[in-house]
């Protein structure tokens, strides 16, 4: 299949007077790992559900592989693997039976892939779904999304409940799928995760896309942040002369800076004021939103 895997044009979804998604537009290219970042209730899941035609757009248009998401929903879903935000599988079934049932619904035989993915994720196929932990349940949901080698993967909070080792397995898997041409659209509220695996990122808040970042380029997000305590106060103007500083905030002896590139000049400057403590600070979603507003 050619054309854009996902194209949203002025998509709006309202529930009564409330716009859960408000006129958003996005184009996702083939082979891209596209992150969709936002806090809870921002509109991530609503957008995903509209793409999958679980809910109808109030306004705007969604095209998947150039097909209308409402009128060609059945055709589109042949090429999609979907992981729901809250992974739920039939509790009374054994894992293998549940996965075979899903394969049957998709109309393909996925026995080989089920075995190979379950080995990758270290999942016992003989267990009853109802007896699984949250993490293992998430693995079942992930396997059912990947097992038919879809061209487009739509994953809502895919690493929720996975331990760090399994997260790494997941990251490797999506990178490998993307390198083979599959497109991955994943929602998350974990910025580090998105930075780690995604080529591109859209940030959504209150139903609106507030930024789109190309993470393969020199993104504004590719900065390292430090909180530094000095023995003497420093003036902000002193820091403005340092090229590697992208942003800075000074409060007496405390300096908070976002940096990019070579730090030699920065630390040479700061050492004149006596460095008492340095700590690296992770960017939180809140920081990010503050940055974009």
């Amino acid at each position: 299949m050619n054309n854009l895997p996902i194209s949203l044009k002025e998509l709006t979804k309202s529930f009564g007077d409330f716009n859960a998604v408000d006129s958003i537009s996005l184009d996702i290219q083939e082979g891209e790992i596209y992150g969709f970042l936002g806090p809870n209730g921002a509109g991530k899941s609503t957008t995903i559900r509209a793409i999958l035609n679980f809910i109808r757009p109030t306004k705007g248009k969604i095209e998947v592989f150039s097909l209308d998401s409402v009128n060609n929903s059945t055709e589109i879903k042949k090429h999609i693997g979907y992981l729901a935000g809250s992974a739920e599988v039939y509790e009374e079934m054994r894992v293998e039976r549940a996965l075979r049932y899903f394969a049957n619904l998709k109309g393909v035989n996925c026995d080989k892939e089920i075995k190979s993915l379950s080995r990758k994720f270290k999942l016992d196929l003989t267990k009853k779904v109802g007896d699984l932990s949250k993490g293992n349940l998430q693995k079942v949901a992930l396997i059912q999304a990947f097992m038919h080698n879809p061209q487009l993967l739509i994953l809502d909070e895919p690493t929720s409940g996975l331990d760090p080792l399994m997260k790494e397995v997941f990251y490797k898997l999506i990178k490998s799928k993307a390198s083979k041409g599959a497109t991955i659209f994943l929602s998350s509220h974990d910025l580090l995760e998105v930075q780690k695996v995604c080529h591109k990122l859209a940030i959504i808040k209150d139903g609106k896309i507030i930024a789109v970042e190309d993470l393969t380029q020199n993104s504004r997000l590719n900065t390292t942040n430090y909180e530094i305590t000095l023995s003497k106060p420093i003036k902000k103007v002193e820091l403005e002369k340092v090229k590697s500083i992208v942003r800075s905030r000074v409060s007496g002896k405390k300096v908070t800076i976002a940096t990019k590139g070579d730090l030699t000049a920065l630390f040479r400057k700061l050492s004149k004021y006596g460095i008492v403590k340095i700590s690296e600070k992770k960017i939180t979603l809140e920081d990010l939103f503050l940055h974009y507003y």
Binding site: E75, E88, F102, L105, G107, Q144
Partner: peptide, 10 residues
């Protein structure tokens, strides 16, 4: 929550 899995199938 399993209805979504049915609806995501072709």
């Amino acid at each position: 929550g399993t209805l979504e899995l049915l609806l995501a199938s072709p």
